[in-house]
Design a protein around this nucleic acid. Structure first.
Lengths: 208, 208
DNA sequence: GCATCACTTGACCAATTGGTCAAGAAATTT
DNA sequence: AAATTTCTTGACCAATTGGTCAAGTGATGC
């Protein structure tokens, strides 16, 4: 019997472990969402977490491990709204609620949005399997649901997949391109006017 | 009289200078659009350009200079379609042509799209002034034009700024999130079906 | 042919980076 | 309070990185 590692990595059971790991995750979310995996440094993460670099390594295998675990832990949160999209006798309201929720997430979780955006732009090497596996399956399911609404005449006909893409695109745009949006709008807060606009956009798109 | 630099940086007048500088730009576009400024390395750029690292430095001041010059040289191309948006007695067709042109650019210039996307996500430190200066002015002008169409009853009413944002978002999504889109769609080419969808989306949005 | 200038690069350097390690400081258990 | 385990870090290391430099190679003009 051989021990692979003299001090096994903490799994996060005790209070102090949970807190420190969370602090690292939080700092890593800042740093990774600003610079991507390659552009981020352990020093930056450690500094922002208020820990020493070796201490960070004590809790995680390394930079890439932090990134991977962070991505995976956020994936569930990120696709939850789509999972919750379910059959309804008012499909337009159901979809508009989904749009609203996605827009709220752009406002309240911009770092998460940018993290995923950067990962996607860089060809998603760490979550490719999730995209073509579970996410595709989820999309197929929801696209079928939307298609059934369209077939029933409750929704204007269009391509369900591209419809979801357009919802993702328009809502996440306010998180990912926040700087640009704010620069162009001057001092005005985008999230004051965006909800009304996206509601109009998708209501017109969806109403038969 | 003092010479600031023994060998002044080539400005790109001769044939060989233009070619090499272009090769570097092209390699840099690859590398920067994949990893961002911080994640990119001179070695990677030099290797992809087929040059030695010192040779790259011979033509440009340094990594940051390549990035800056590249960004600036692409900015004009990038906003050209919006500049060309002009008054017309068929504003819907004018706007749909703009949408189509943006979607074509996502298909034909995905690296450029990702380069700008990464810069924006990272708070656009290199083009902030452009965003809040010339781009804002351009947006104000075009938003006023769109508003005048709406006031004339030629276009369904909505917020012109957010309308342009939604056009940017939906079209650029196909370049920036190409991997995700393709993973979800399976083997199908997104650009086979996207044009039809975005046309439907914005026609419904714009028709009074 | 030779001088001049543009171009190219191997060798090198200092700074940064991901990560190790041994030893100490805190908790926790007994 | 002693023993044990968990947590923390200063010092260190090898690899990478942005960039320099002197010595070349090649083209161009005279």
């Amino acid at each position: 019997m051989s021990k692979a590692r003299p001090t096994p990595r903490p799994t996060g059971t005790t209070r102090i472990q949970r807190e420190k790991r969370q602090a690292i995750f939080d700092a890593a979310l800042d740093v990774f969402s600003e610079n991507g995996l390659r552009g981020a440094t352990l020093d930056a993460i450690a500094a922002r977490a208020g820990l020493s670099k070796p201490n960070v390594i004590y809790y995680f295998e390394g930079k890439e491990a932090i990134y991977k675990e962070l991505l995976e832990s956020l994936l569930d949160i990120w696709i939850a709204p789509l999972i919750d999209l379910s059959d309804s006798h008012e499909p337009i309201e159901e979809l508009l609620a989904y749009v609203r929720r996605k827009l709220d997430m752009s406002r309240d979780m911009p770092r998460e949005s940018r993290l995923f955006a950067t990962e996607m732009i860089q060809a998603a090497p760490h979550i490719r399997d999730v995209l073509s596996g579970p996410l595709k399956a989820l999309m197929d399911e929801k696209a079928a649901l939307i298609q059934s609404w369209m077939d029933a005449g409750l929704l204007a006909k269009s391509d369900p997949y591209h419809l979801i893409f357009s919802i993702w695109a328009t809502t996440q745009h306010y998180a990912d391109f926040d700087v640009q949006v704010r620069a162009v709008l001057g001092g005005q807060d985008p999230f004051d006017s965006a909800p009304e606009f996206v509601e109009i956009l998708f209501r017109r798109m969806l109403t038969p």
